[in-house]
């Protein structure tokens, strides 16, 4: 059984078909890249998987469990995390606090336990701190731990957002253009981290990315969207030689 299974998902905004019967699956431990020209529906697909958008038809399953009608926070509780194309960080918080929010679903403490700073609530907070500090170290963000994220450079913010998603300890991680706006040094660094997440932590990843070199190197499999429909799905080698993909990227209609 696939870890993440998207079957025949269709999404319409008014008269626009953002997604047309898109199906694809990601096996446990796999890293799959979603590519396609601008407006192909890649982000819409991530929105449907994470619950930000509700598809008109189709299903989203994780480990066989139907996620389609769950709200986003319920999906997070079941082990789904994502990052955003235009950054979804909490700008008024420090790096550390942003990552602690990622631990929300691992905590139980309520208003009273938090406000009174007493008993289980207190121990729970301290336990989360350790978990988050480990991730901060892993992402090499130690020096920036107490900085407000709004004051950080764009590339660093991207890394913080990855850290927040990792804090959730997801079964499935969705990344929306994690390398956009980075220089090649930053990209290499992030690629190394993504591989480590995927291999050492065995996290299943679906990633949208435009840098074809990175996509070809990182992913086990590539899924290509064009005009809201899937036009190809295969290993990097297969995709490289796929005539329809080349046509889509050159702006011609593949017939």
């Amino acid at each position: 059984m696939a870890r993440l299974e998207v079957s025949a998902v269709s999404l319409r905004f008014g008269g626009v078909n953002a997604l047309r019967e898109v199906s694809f699956s990601v096996a446990d431990g796999e890293l799959v890249a979603l590519i396609g020209p601008n407006g192909a529906g890649k982000t819409s697909l991530l929105n449907c998987i994470s619950g930000v958008c509700r598809p008109q038809s189709g299903k989203v399953l994780i480990d066989g469990e139907d996620f389609t009608s769950l709200r986003p926070h319920q999906r997070a509780r079941r082990g789904l995390a994502r990052t955003f194309q235009n950054l979804g960080l909490f700008k008024g918080m420090t790096v550390l606090e942003n990552l602690l929010v990622g631990r929300h679903t691992h905590q139980k403490s309520s208003v009273l336990a938090g406000g009174l700073w007493f008993g289980r609530g207190r121990r729970e907070e301290q336990g989360q701190l350790e978990a988050v500090l480990a991730i901060i170290e892993f992402l090499e963000l130690g020096d920036l731990r107490d900085r407000l994220v709004g004051t950080l450079a764009y590339g660093l913010q991207k890394r913080v957002e990855l850290g927040r998603a990792l804090s959730l300890e997801p079964r499935v991680l969705l990344l929306d253009e994690p390398m956009a706006g980075m220089n090649s040094g930053e990209k290499d660094q992030l690629a190394r981290l993504i591989i480590e997440v995927n291999e050492r932590r065995r996290t299943t990843i679906a990633m949208i990315e435009h840098d074809m070199g990175m996509v070809m190197n990182l992913s086990h499999r590539i899924c290509v969207l064009d005009f809201g429909a899937k036009i190809a799905d295969g290993t990097p080698e297969e995709i490289r030689n796929h005539p329809g993909v080349q046509a889509a990227y050159l702006g011609q209609k593949a017939h």
Partner: peptide, 25 residues
């Protein structure tokens, strides 16, 4: 105390980015 623990962080998360807050759980 609320501000430095789970509920308070959830409040600020909602203020700063409500969609991201929902997605993180």
């Amino acid at each position: 105390n609320l501000a430095r623990t789970r509920p308070g962080r959830a409040f600020i998360a909602i203020r700063d980015q409500d969609i991201a807050a929902e997605v993180i759980g």
